[in-house]
């Protein structure tokens, strides 16, 4: 069993350029990783003796909404710039330790590497993050919408600047 700080130090030693930051938040220490290297970091976390993270507990997309906000006349908000993040909560069943990883991608070009080849359960989680937030997971085998209809073209509903469409297939959407 290792503390998160120890895990961060191991990672930093292994990936000096890709492991970016360690935020020692008391409730949930977070390690920030380069989005285009997350699959290598994750593979290392799974395969290295002493780490052995065999479980991806959760993968969640988050809209940080830290860009430039402009209030539109119709009451909605438009956000430019800032980041969209993905959080990976890993757990090692064998050694009983946990770690939280984060990747931040630019809002205009949200691309992160898929970890589907490392933990199979990431498949649907990544599809959900794509469906709801719009993060594109590179090298994902089947990146389709999972909850919304396939022909949903009004954007990604859980983004903070999402606007409801007037109609979907002839049905009025707003109240």
């Amino acid at each position: 069993m290792k503390t998160r700080e120890e895990i961060f130090n191991i990672l930093k030693q292994e990936f000096p350029q890709d492991v970016l930051e360690f935020q020692n938040i008391p409730t949930e220490p977070i390690i920030t990783v380069n989005p285009l290297a997350i699959h290598r970091v994750c593979l290392f976390l799974r395969e290295t003796a002493g780490l052995e993270f065999d479980t991806l507990m959760c993968l969640s997309g988050v809209d940080d909404a830290n860009g430039e906000k402009t209030n539109d006349p119709d009451g909605s908000v438009t956000i430019k710039g800032g980041t969209l993040s993905v959080y990976y909560h890993l757990h090692s069943m064998k050694l009983d330790h946990k770690v939280t990883l984060r990747v931040s991608t630019p809002r205009e070009d949200p691309e992160a590497e898929s970890v589907e080849s490392i933990w199979k359960c990431a498949d649907w989680h990544e599809r959900e993050a794509y469906d709801m937030i719009g993060i594109i997971f590179l090298h994902h085998p089947d990146l389709r919408r999972i909850l919304m209809p396939y022909d949903w073209d009004a954007g990604y509903p859980l983004r903070k600047d999402y606007k409801n469409p007037e109609f979907y297939q002839g049905m009025k959407v707003p109240y």
Partner: peptide, 15 residues
Amino acid sequence: YWQHGYHVLKGIDRV
């Protein structure tokens, strides 16, 4: 879901 339900039909009588 009447306000933030982006995925919910607000009343089946619309269909």
